[in-house]
């Protein structure tokens, strides 16, 4: 870290935590139960506050995922995944094998795909989190970009990031590569256009 002062800059080193430390801190009650934090490369980061649009998108997506997958796979909403010895982020949605070891947080080997809904956090999700997900070997990561109303499917993980990105906009849809029966319609998860969805149950 570089601390800027009036006269000069000073280099200091932050203490880095392991995922085990982080787990222990949770158990010891160090964090407020409602604290929105994640462990990213050994640092405890405050998550971006989520707005109404973000919450709505998570709700719609959760409905759509569980409707299509039924009991084929477990859908986690804003739960931690242990991706490294120093990394335990909380993706907005995470789909894992039903048989994963429930005594520990899920791992990349348990994971079919994860989704980050990005409103204010787009650059952080794209430049920091996606490369970490790829390096951890998560086979498929999605970004739902609320600002441009597009969704992106990132596949073929490599140490430095995903090799292939496919995107879709309004009235389009994209299928998962890891869960062949799953298809995401942009209009449904982003609630576009509002009129078609809001009346559908009546």
């Amino acid at each position: 870290m570089v601390v800027a002062t009036r006269e000069t800059t000073v280099e200091i080193t932050r203490h880095r935590f392991t995922a085990d430390d982080y787990q222990l801190m949770g158990e010891a009650g160090i964090f407020h139960p409602n604290a929105r934090v994640e462990l990213i490369e050994g640092e405890i980061i405050e998550m971006f506050p989520i707005g109404a649009g973000h919450i709505g998108c998570i709700g719609l997506t959760n409905m759509e995922l569980t409707r299509q997958l039924q009991t084929q796979a477990i859908v986690f909403v804003q739960c931690p995944i242990r991706i490294a010895d120093d990394g335990e982020p909380q993706p907005d949605l995470l789909i894992v094998r039903k048989e994963y070891d429930r005594t520990m947080p899920p791992t990349p080997a348990d994971t079919f795909l994860l989704i980050e809904v990005s409103e204010n956090s787009l650059r952080f999700d794209r430049t920091i989190k996606l490369p970490l997900y790829a390096a951890a070997g998560i086979p498929e990561s999605w970004i739902f970009d609320m600002k441009t109303a597009r969704i992106e499917r990132h596949t073929e993980p490599r140490p430095g990031g995903y090799a292939t990105i496919k995107s879709a906009g309004a009235r389009e849809e994209l299928a998962s590569t890891t869960l062949p029966g799953l298809t995401i319609s942009v209009d449904e998860v982003l609630g576009l256009p509002p009129t078609t969805l809001s009346r559908s149950g009546q």
């Binding site: 010891a28 980061i45 430049t127």
Partner: peptide
């Protein structure tokens, strides 16, 4: 990218030491 680190209080810091973190 702008991110915000979690900031600890002196009490939390003390409890982390006691909890063996």
């Amino acid at each position: 990218v702008e991110i915000k680190r979690h900031r600890f209080t002196a009490d939390e810091y003390q409890r982390m030491a006691e909890a063996g973190v």
